[in-house]
Amino acid sequence: MAAPESGDGNNGAARMVTLISSDNTRFEVEAAAASLSQTLQLTILDGGGGGGDGIPLPNVDSATLSKVLEYCIKHAPAAANGGAPNATAVDRAELERFDNEFVNIDQSVLYSLIMAAHNLEIEGLQSLVAKKVADMIKGKSPMEIRRTLGFPDPTPEEQAEMNAHMLEYGWAYE
């Protein structure tokens, strides 16, 4: 992975920061990658996370954080190019392939990722995980959606509400 030429000011290029997960695992990553997170970006611009300090992330466990960072490291070069207007089609295809593979994960991991992407405000990742959940819903009947997302079978009251809704919006269920 090529280090971006210009990062945040003079300590940009190879500056490393340390992130500490909720279970006290330390992750050292390039500042450029961590800066994909809007939340972290401010801290990093302020000079935080360097040296022995580390930025504590009490809401993100190590499993989720390592997954999040995998995404950030992959996407950092393109992001540094300002959304990559000069990226080649090959680069973009590679990122797309990576993204597809990346969200091919267990639902609980997906859930943790949704929350982490939200807390850390990583725009690209937020879209990616939201789209993944949407894909799991698309083209399915309500019962199939419930099962896919792991909802229990509906109670009689829920079933009655479902039926009423299906009656009201019958065309959407055909």
Partner: peptide, 16 residues
């Protein structure tokens, strides 16, 4: 999540 869905699918989530 819903913004990634066509209207029909979005409506069906009401049954969730």
């Amino acid at each position: 999540i819903l913004t990634h869905l066509p209207l029909k699918d979005a409506i069906r989530t009401a049954a969730l």
